[in-house]
């Protein structure tokens, strides 16, 4: 991916812009292909974000959260 979106909602907003532009039929061939590539990257990003909150709902108490984060390997917390 050329540049990671700021957030899920930013990615979706850009995706909607891309599809609106493509639906307008005004994009030339080069622009269309570029937009399709960018759009596919955004779909992949958004799907990954959804996958991250689609496995099993985890319940923790605040102290358990702190303990979990302290024992987690360094760098595994943030993607």
């Amino acid at each position: 991916m050329s540049e990671k979106p700021a957030s899920y909602e930013a990615a979706v907003e850009r995706l909607e812009q891309i599809i609106d532009r493509l639906d307008s039929g005004q994009a030339g061939l080069r622009e269309t292909l570029d937009l399709c590539r960018e759009g596919r990257e955004l779909v992949v990003y958004c799907t990954a974000e959804l996958d991250a909150v689609s496995e099993d709902l985890e319940e923790l108490r605040l102290d358990e959260l702190a303990a979990k984060l302290e024992t987690a390997p360094a760098g595994s917390g943030e993607g």
Binding site: I18, I19, L22, D23, L29, L35, C36, R40, C46, L50
Partner: peptide
């Protein structure tokens, strides 16, 4: 959202194929 993403992916594929 997952459904909307799938529709977006289809739109993108059609747009790409349609353009070519």
């Amino acid at each position: 959202a997952r459904g909307a993403l799938q529709r977006a992916a289809v739109s993108l594929r059609r747009a790409g194929e349609g353009a070519l």
